[in-house]
Design a protein around this nucleic acid. Structure first.
Lengths: 265, 265
DNA sequence: GCAGCAACTTAACATGGGTGAATGTCCGCG
DNA sequence: CGCGGACATTCACCCATGTTAAGTTGCTGC
């Protein structure tokens, strides 16, 4: 369940327009490898990826680097602007990247016009933490082969939202070196594994595309279980948000585009 | 920054009373190893640890288990009750455990009486995700010695809130086997490392207590950087929460115990 | 069409940490 | 007091993955 679905479920049509206009107005580009934010800095913007991929990472004093997750188009980078005094991780562009950067003043105005946006962003951030948990078990417990297979499965499913039967393809912008930093392996070993996957599952990574002829087979190799992505849960989302933020959904202007009042559970 | 500090910063005195009464009223005990919640289930309660430690974990089909984090007294287990249809990880008691379990109906009533509680819980959940990120880099990039040292540092600091100079001691309820599951190592290897730490830093784990004669030394071994715990940021928290949830802090009843209006930034 | 660089491959070798199994130590309980 | 269970410790062996160091391929810019 990505930010887009959450926004669709929680915002009124009018709010959605304001939100999307704000994204478009604040677009900014980065070159491959450029940092959008650095660990230890004061957070300066609310960031949504528009095109390309971003990577969250942490670096140790001696240079070892761990990629903590990738941010795909339409997804939220973090809520640090509202939650912490100093950011605890860095964000960089995986390749050429376009991102909406909403500064303090703009954000303030935005939330005044979109009262439901705050809970939508909180939800996206909290669900994003579920992905982080899965990366932890991935690195902690899986073998190199399982790790890489799991990464490919996750990236594939996150781009399709509805898990498709059989196989298919999707964008894949990481180099083998970046995959290594993401999975706690070396570049050389990732290369070995990618070749194994090529032989065993006919998986191909080429030209920034990932091709998976048989998703079931790959998922089995990885013991992939998509529960943590919480797909298809948007339908029942309003019910749960309402439990926590009662007032947000009792406002009289909560209507859909046709003027009908949305079901209130 | 733990839940307690966040609640202190965001709730009115009246709300705090209601909240604490609710915790006390819903206390429930678990035996060592008992599950409070299991992966795949529908979330049934909002849980706050009162005494003892809880562990979040995930298990793979073949039995491998990764501990994703520990929940110390006063901390929130998760917000799954409000965010997901099915939980993606399990929670168990590390040892005998007392926890407040607030069910749907009770939670509903609670949020009606404590309008600021919702944002407090969201903040706690989002800041909890920062700890998860650090576990990821810990397992992905650090050597076994660094990992164990880092774990000890984190547990120590989380119990002291204010990092003390020199050394000290704190509760430590994990067995070496559990430490192994937490750090992606084997029990045997954790034992080797614990003995090294004993020699090199005089660190002792005994009788469910952890003694660290020289915290600086241990922190250096681990390359420990406490940024991710966001200590001491509670002072400026209201300012940030206000940016996101404007309305919550404009309510007329936001007064402190003496009847004076709290500063509004 | 070629220089130059980034990414990918391959190979030989080294090692941190895993495995399995036995032994030791402590403590609560009947 | 002695038994049983939970946890910690030790040992011998070895494999998955890291390290180092060449290549090789294939862009991209000029």
């Amino acid at each position: 369940m990505g930010l887009a679905e959450i926004v669709n479920a929680l915002l009124t049509p009018r709010e959605r327009l304001v939100w999307e206009a704000s994204l478009a107005r604040n677009a900014r580009d980065y070159m491959k490898g450029a940092d959008l934010a650095r660990e230890g800095e004061k957070p300066m913007a609310l960031r949504i990826v528009l095109a390309g991929w971003a990577q969250k990472y942490k670096q140790m004093p001696d240079g070892r680097r761990q990629i903590l997750g990738v941010v795909l188009p339409g997804e939220l980078c973090d809520l640090d602007l509202f939650t912490v005094a100093r950011t605890d991780h860095s964000i960089a562009a995986v390749r050429r990247l376009s991102v909406a950067e909403i500064g303090r003043a703009d954000a303030q105005r935005l939330f005044e016009q979109c009262p439901n946006l705050a809970s939508a962003l909180c939800w996206a951030a909290i669900l994003g933490a579920a992905v982080q948990r899965e990366w932890t078990i991935n690195i902690g417990q899986r073998s190199a082969l399982e790790r890489v297979a799991q990464l490919l499965c996750e990236i594939y499913v996150r781009q399709h939202d509805i898990p498709s039967v059989g196989g298919g393809s999707c964008d894949f912008l990481l180099t083998q070196g970046q995959m290594a930093e993401a999975m706690g392996l070396t570049q050389v070993h990732v290369n070995r594994i990618v070749q194994q996957l090529r032989l065993r599952c006919a998986v191909e990574i080429r030209n920034m595309r990932l091709e998976i002829p048989d998703f079931q087979q790959l998922a089995a190799l990885a013991s992939f279980n998509a529960t943590y992505l919480h797909l298809g849960e948007a339908a029942t989302l309003v019910e749960r948000v309402r439990m926590l933020f009662l007032s947000d959904f009792d406002r009289p202007d909560r209507r859909n585009g046709d003027g009908a009042i949305l079901p209130t559970i």
